[in-house]
Every structure is written in structure tokens, then in C-alpha cells.
Design a protein around this nucleic acid. Sequence first.
DNA 1: ATTCTCATGTAATTGGTTACATGATTGC
DNA 2: GCAATCATGTAACCAATTACATGAGAAT
Lengths: 184, 184
Amino acid sequence: MELSPTGHVILGLLSLGPKSGYEIKAFVDRTVRFFWAASYGQIYPELRRLADAGLIEGEARPAGGRRRTVYELTAEGRRRLREWLAVDPAVFEMRDEGLLKLFFADSTGGASAIETLAAKRRHHLEIVEVLRAIEPLAASKAERFPLVVCRFGIECNQWMADWCQRMADELSASEKAEPRRRTA
Amino acid sequence: MELSPTGHVILGLLSLGPKSGYEIKAFVDRTVRFFWAASYGQIYPELRRLADAGLIEGEARPAGGRRRTVYELTAEGRRRLREWLAVDPAVFEMRDEGLLKLFFADSTGGASAIETLAAKRRHHLEIVEVLRAIEPLAASKAERFPLVVCRFGIECNQWMADWCQRMADELSASEKAEPRRRTA
DNA sequence: ATTCTCATGTAATTGGTTACATGATTGC
DNA sequence: GCAATCATGTAACCAATTACATGAGAAT
């Protein structure tokens, strides 16, 4: 059976320890959501599929009266995870509305660009904040790579924020040097 | 009528001059596809919707016998484009399978990380190549912002490629210093 | 009492890709 | 004659989000 990337994410998360669907969602939101988000609408059906395929195993473990199913990897699931990790990554997609608006900013004579850059900058700085907050947590774990990836997120978003600043500066500088001629 | 981001992309592209659906697709593939892709399956139906909404106007302009419809912005379409450009960008999404695999690399004892980083690096360098090739074209145009965005793409992907290199170096250095103890 | 968090799940919808179908024109 | 390119479009499918439904226990 072919597995979706989100299926692999679940296998990966379960390799860090057994979890319920709810915990998987919470974990994703705290960690990989910046480069791979997942919603309940994906997670629960996917857990069912993975269990049917024998890659994970669910066990009823009610926490104080609340019904609750905790899943963990089977040997086959662990094998499939490693198999996936050994293959070169293929998917790399970005959807950045800010760059899009910047691309078309000539149709406002450049007037919209300053605010677009400022908004994009704020957005990246917000992400930096969030990642900085979870960095110590990642650093405290036995696993080393979550921390590596967390730091990538911090540095990369900081770089993008700085680029926005730089561009905004250059723009207002050239604006002063040669005031806008056309508004077309 | 609410417009999808892809609808706005089409308005934006038409602000740079009248185009057929086919030309729009080709243009997207040469320019914005790295942060906002679009396929025929979206473009043609969207052209229909935009025309129905009075934001663009199609004119039959067969090129040497081939049937062909060229669209251009209406005044209302131009207004809607500017309206959209004035709003802060909201969408910023990444789906990066490489980071995902890196995140889970502890389950191969780190062994998979080197190759994942190398593959990710190659991918970013490929994008840099493509963008460098179209940079002179962007520079030759009257519009300034497509060039700005093109350079963002070059610098950003170069940064990511360099990060991959840096990480791979650090990894093999620490590997030599203290050879891997666990393979869990 | 009420709200918050834990917990599981489904249905409807969105946004998008891929593959296919069709056909004319151009260049080799 | 054949392949490549120009050109338009649809149908099937996929991944994923949002909103909704349900309900229990914990905290205030």
C-alpha cells in the first residue's frame, strides 16, 4: 500500500513514543506544522488506514474514565518509516501570498509594496517567536534532529524577515533618490 | 464575489498585458510557480468565472487560423486587483518533505540525515539555476517588482542550500568527534 | 453551573493536480 | 510524414481544511 506523506508523519511521530490521535494533533501543532500541517480530518482516518495495514497498533487506554486509543508502531511500521527516510525527499512547495502581492506591486506604482513587505516581515518574526519558545524544549530531548529542524525554522524565518527589512529600506531609499514617475 | 488567490494571480498577470489561457500558464511556469503554481484545470475555469464576474474580457484573436481567446482586465478588474494588493497577505504555507525526513532522522540513528540534506541542497540549487536563467529577462522589463521577487527566490534558495551544506558539515564533524552510540 | 480541555470522529467543501480528449499549425 | 508546440477544455481524483457533532472529566 502506498502511503501519503501525512501517513509517514504519523509513523514518524509514533517512533518518538506511543500517542493518541489527539496527542498527535497537539504534537504536530507544536512542532512540524510550519512545514507540514495536519488536521483531525486527516489524522483519524489515516490512523484507521495505518492500523488496517498493520503498520501501527491501537490499544484502548482510557485516561481516568475518558475513552482513549493509544497507537504505537509495529515492527513493520518501523521498517516502513526507515524505508521512507532512505528515499530522497520529493515534495517542496511554497504558497506565499506576500511574494505574489510583491510581484504585482508595479500595478500600484509600488505603493502597496512597503506595507506588503512589512506584513510579511511581521509574519516571519511571529514564527521566529513561536519557534524560539519551543527551542529549549527541543533541546532537552534525547533526539537531536528535532532541534536541528527547529533551528532551521528560526534562522530561515529570521533571514526572510531581514530580507523584507532590507527591501523596504532599499525601496524607500530609491523613492527618495528618484520619486516615482509613473503610477501605472 | 469572493476571489480565490489564483483568481488574483490571473488578474495580476493580465495587468502586465493581455494574454490567452495558454500564455498565462506558460507565464506562471516561468515566473511565480515557485511560490504559487497553477494548472490548466484551474486557469480555464477561473477565466470563465472572472469573465462572468466582469473583471476580465475575452476577445477571439485567432493566431494564424488557430482559435485563441485573449483576455484583458476591465476597469473593475483593475480595481479589484489594487484592492487585493492593499490587503495584508495572509497565506504562507510550506510543505517540505526534506525537513520532515530530517526531523525524524533519529530513528535511523542519524544515518539518513546526510543524504536527505544532500538531496534538499541539490533541489534548492536547481531552483537557483532556473531563477538565475530568468533573472536577465526580469531585469529587462519595465516592471521592477518581478525582478525583486526573482532575486528573493535566488537568495533564499541559496541560503537554504548553504544551510544544508553547513548542517551536513557539522554532522559529519560531530560524527568523527563522538561516533554514534545508539542506532535506536 | 459553566467553561476548558481531552477525545474521537464525520461531512461538506475547497483548492488543486493529473490525465485525458481534441485539434490545428509549424518546423524538421 | 512526424514531432513539437499552440490552444482549450473536462473528468477523475487527491489532499487537506473547516465546521460540525458528540460527550466526558477537570477546573473554577
